[in-house]
Design a protein around this nucleic acid. Sequence first.
DNA 1: TCGCAGATATTCT
DNA 2: GAATATCTGCGAG
Length: 192
Amino acid sequence: MLTREFYSHEPGYVARALLGKKLCRLVDGQLLAGLITEVEAYGGPEDSASHASKGQTPRNAVMFGKAGISYVYFIYGMHYMFNIVTEQKGRAAAVLIRALYPTNGIEKMIRNRNGQARHIADGPAKLCQALKIDFSINKHDLTNSKTLWLQSGINVSNIHINSGPRIGIDYAAEKDKNAPLRYWLSNVDLYI
DNA sequence: TCGCAGATATTCT
DNA sequence: GAATATCTGCGAG
């Protein structure tokens, strides 16, 4: 299982380090797991795209907490998003998990997604459906949990990592051109 | 492939 | 009270 030290760095670094790691979820005694294939980093108050850019609110308070805690929130009236808090307590920073490559409990994931057998977890809200992620695991400690944690997965060298501007936030695209904060892996099945 | 409707928590006025 | 949001699914072309 990954330690708190792993999450205690700046979000861009943690985001890259998370690629290829295994996200595990235990629900009803069944293991649901997948390799992380796409992530986005969100910085502190200086990052205009971050929820924390306008100061602390009850909703984003988790981002100001300590590293290794999950931050789950609801968007567009129908979708959950799953983030992991990084850096020190008092520094608002997080990494959004955007996509997984399912490895364990695939049948269960398909049922969780209403029978959709393709594109099970290739989007931030889809992966939440597949792994049954909702407010019940908001503020969850990922370094000390039996229902939601991360562990080492495949070995990913830098040459496999793609990067680019973040999605859904045009106003941050220009900034992201200089320092891309979205990272993803392609052809994951070749490296398993 | 592309464009748009969908439904609600949270924040802004 | 109104606007907005780290998106997905579906229907048309």
